[in-house]
Simulated scan of single mutants.
Amino acid sequence: MTRPLRVVAVPASHPYVRRVTADDAITLSHDPRPDGAGPGVWWPPVALDAAWIRAHADEADLLHVHFGTESFDVEHLIAAVDAAHDAGWAVVQTVHDLDHPQLADDEQAPYRAQLDALLPRVDAVLTLTAGAAAEIARRWGVEATVVPHPRLLDPRTTAATAPIGLAGDQRLIGLHLKDLRPGVDGPGATAALIAAVERLRSGGLAVAAEVRLHRSVRDEAARDDVRRLCATSEAVSLVEHDRLDDTALAAGLARLDACVLPYRHGTHSGWLELCWDLGVPVVAPDTGHYADQHDDPTVTSARFDDDGAALAEALERVLREGARPGTTHRRDIITARLADRARVDAGVVRSHVAVYRAVLAHPRIRPTPSGHPIESAASPARPAERTTA
């Protein structure tokens, strides 16, 4: 019997990473704990370090980088990849973000420099959408394997037990700003939503909106602007609350007729995936590749202009195509989507195993900064099965 592939994933504890590597063919190393950190703390990623890799060279076959590169400078990351190659490991990177959601607009240059250094250097690149793969090919000349985002709804939740909310007299649109991280445009998204709701109401559609915000935020000035904006509209309510656990979050989203994503920049959205699992239509901003995550009329994008015209049009469209909370139709959508998730997610796991085996089995020649070629592993370019639900 072939032994399992020993993978150091960065970070191994992330739910996304756990789900895409859930196969007997893969043994996932535990996240090493930073010095002095308490249980469950894995940040910054200790394993993304040349010295750590050299010390554990005999314990793994492959390094897979997902999140956490922003904790280091470019030289540190190059040294880590080189150490992995010197140890005989292959290196795979999943590009979740082409623009980093945890960084402000004026902080993106160092992150992009990391992508410039790493993507041509690693042995295989994965990403979540065809649109992102096309951008990677255009910017770096690298062909990325497309693997769709897996299900985010709690694995214990079935189609029968998933929350579906209750329909109110008015259609309810949600905007969740959470803690106002740098990639979220709280005031801009709120202003666009207020204008869009007023347009929809003036057109005869009974609609209201709910803006949600954590009590503890990163940008207090933006929070104050959101409070002021919400106070100007009778149709938009502001709810400030502590961070929700997974159950409360799913129940809150299930109440919605549609959800608006508040991103100023970014690439892909796990929030969109959770809404998808729950049958909640989504309107994303026309940036990144959010609308590529699902080919479905209840997932779309629009410009978030101050007049709200484009957002109102997009909301009207997804509200027409979607199912109201609390209905049999909403339950039927969830049932179909979770069944599709089971099929596609199994394909995503198989794709990871296939990529890992390919890069380990087929050495190729890769350039070094000095121009001298050395052996590395071949990067497969076959896309994974994608959902069309």
Results as ranks from 00 to 15, higher is better:
D307M: 01
A339M: 07
D306K: 13
D305Q: 15
E313D: 10
R341K: 02
A302N: 10
L338W: 00
G308F: 00
T335C: 13
R303A: 14
R317Q: 04
A312S: 14
R303N: 12
R303W: 10
R331F: 05
L338D: 02
T300E: 08
T335W: 07
D345T: 15
V318D: 07
R320A: 15
D340I: 00
A314M: 07
A339K: 12
G326R: 06
I334K: 12
R324Q: 08
A312L: 04
D332I: 05
T327A: 10
T328A: 15
E321G: 00
R343A: 09
R303G: 14
G322Y: 05
F304N: 01
D345L: 13
H329Y: 07
F304K: 02
T300I: 11
R337H: 04
S301L: 01
P325K: 03
A323I: 01
T300C: 10
A302R: 09
A314V: 03
L315V: 09
T328R: 13
D345S: 15
R331T: 03
A323L: 05
E313G: 01
V318F: 10
A309R: 11
I333A: 09
A302D: 11
R341M: 06
R343C: 01
P325E: 08
I333R: 04
L319I: 15
F304I: 06
D306H: 14
P325N: 04
R303E: 14
R331E: 06
V344Q: 11
A302G: 10
L338M: 07
R330P: 10
V344H: 12
D305W: 09
T300M: 04
L311W: 11
V318A: 10
G308T: 02
G322Q: 08
R317D: 04
R320C: 12
D340Q: 09
L315M: 03
T300N: 10
E321V: 00
T335F: 07
D305G: 15
A302T: 12
A309D: 05
D306R: 15
I334H: 14
F304C: 02
F304R: 02
V318Q: 11
R331I: 04
L311N: 14
P325T: 02
D340V: 08
